[in-house]
Computed example of a mutant assay.
Amino acid sequence: MAQATIGDSEFDRDTAVTPRPDHQGGPGVFDAHLSQGWTILRAVNGGYLLATAARALGQVLPHPDPFTITAHYLTPSGPGPAVIRTDVIRTGRTMSTGQARLLQTDSAGHEVERLRVTASYGDLDGLPDDVRTSAKPFAIPPYERCLGRADGPDVASASPFSSGSTEITERLDIRLDPETARWALGAPSGRGEIRAWFGLADGRDADPLSLLLAVDALPPTAFDLGLGGWVPTVELTVHVRQRPAPGPLRIAVSTRNLAGGFLEEDGEVWDSEDRLVAQSRQLARVLLP
């Protein structure tokens, strides 16, 4: 099978948005179809939703790339039709800011808001080359020594909520660091850390939009704390720092504080040239069985 390319892959097709004509609610209104293929357990994956909303914002803002994007997840999204309503808040010479709301129609015919996003866009290719950082790539075994789907139980079967969809796992190439995958064997470390190699299963290289998926694609850190169950995202912020080089990504997520049924997850994404290309933080609920 030939490797998929940016713009011609399942991810691109499934995050596609179609602008409505002015007489049907436009401008700035888009139709989308949330694919069953990006579902996990009970709902559509939050990173996939964020990438879809970001694609719509990229069509109304004058700059091409999300620099910082924040999403609040209001109600669970399901596969099927969705509408994205965008607003341009401000445009400037080097950055522009907008808002997007993703909505679906419920069984009673009412429009329900699923996701609200605010983002500032710019041009990653126009950033200066200077880098002054103390950040260093984290240690992880080589790809071939890490654990994939064929090496053990997948996310859903390791969770008490084992009923539900795991279709997203067929679209991702995730190889977990064995040191942070012991929860799958019933021996979590208790440190709240997950590290992995990441790519799309069809071989498509990463771009700024797929980074929004990547930061929310790993098993939740709650598993490494010895907790199972659904961990829905409440809020997710992503900073895209550079356009990723071709090749697999390395992702690390960690939590330091679980309290009151909520935890934070801090993430960092490194590309094949050892560059920090994205950072994230999310607040998530821990729903115990």
Rank of each mutant, 00 (worst) to 15 (best):
A184S: 15
L176E: 01
P188A: 06
T169K: 05
S163T: 15
L176V: 03
G164R: 09
F161D: 13
P188Q: 05
V155D: 07
A187F: 09
R182W: 00
P188R: 01
S189Y: 02
A187G: 00
T169P: 00
E170P: 00
S189E: 00
E179R: 14
S162P: 01
G164T: 09
G164W: 07
A181P: 03
D173V: 06
S159W: 06
P178N: 04
L172P: 07
T180Y: 00
A158H: 07
S159Y: 04
L185A: 13
G186P: 06
P178I: 07
P178L: 04
E179F: 04
I174P: 02
F161G: 10
P188D: 02
A158T: 15
I168S: 06
A156Q: 10
S162V: 10
D177L: 06
T180N: 03
A187I: 00
I168D: 01
F161I: 12
S157Q: 13
G190Q: 05
G186W: 03
T166G: 09
P188M: 05
E179D: 13
R175M: 06
S189N: 06
A158W: 03
W183T: 01
A184V: 06
S165V: 11
R175K: 12
T180K: 03
A156L: 15
W183H: 07
P178D: 03
W183K: 00
R182N: 00
P160E: 08
R171M: 02
G190H: 06
R171A: 08
S163R: 13
A184I: 09
S157L: 11
P160G: 09
R175D: 06
V155I: 14
T166S: 14
S162E: 11
P188V: 04
E179K: 11
S163I: 13
V155M: 11
G186V: 01
R175I: 03
E179S: 14
W183R: 03
W183I: 04
S165W: 09
P160S: 13
L176K: 00
A181F: 04
T166Y: 10
L185E: 09
S189M: 01
S157P: 00
D173S: 13
S162H: 15
P178F: 05
